[in-house]
Computed example of a mutant assay.
Amino acid sequence: MIRRSRRTLPAVLVALVLAAGCVAVIVSLAQRWAGVPEFLSYDTVARELHATTWNEWPVLVAALALLVAGALLLATALLPGRPGVLPLNTEDDMEAGVPAGDLRALLRGDATTVDGVDSARITLRRGTVRAVVETGLHRGQTEIADRVCAVLSNRIQELGRPMQRVQVRVKGPEEAAGSRRASRLATPPARAEAEASR
Rank of each mutant, 00 (worst) to 15 (best):
R7V: 01
L9I: 13
L9K: 10
P10V: 03
A15Q: 09
A20F: 12
C22M: 12
V25P: 00
V27H: 01
Q31N: 09
Q31Y: 04
A34P: 01
G35L: 07
V36N: 03
P37S: 08
D43A: 15
D43K: 03
V45I: 12
R47W: 03
H50M: 11
T52G: 00
W54Q: 10
A63T: 14
A63I: 00
L66P: 01
P83I: 05
P83K: 02
N89T: 15
T90G: 09
T90N: 12
D93M: 01
A96G: 03
V98R: 08
A100Y: 06
A100M: 05
A100F: 05
D110A: 14
A111H: 04
T113F: 00
A120R: 05
L124Q: 05
G127R: 04
T128R: 12
V129R: 03
A131S: 10
G136A: 14
H138M: 11
D146L: 13
D146H: 11
I156V: 13
L159M: 08
Q164C: 00
V166I: 04
Q167G: 01
V170Y: 02
G172D: 08
P173A: 11
E175I: 12
A177G: 14
G178Q: 05
S179Q: 04
S179G: 00
S183M: 03
A186W: 05
P189W: 04
A192N: 09
E193T: 12
A194G: 13
E195D: 13
E195C: 04
A196K: 09
R198D: 15
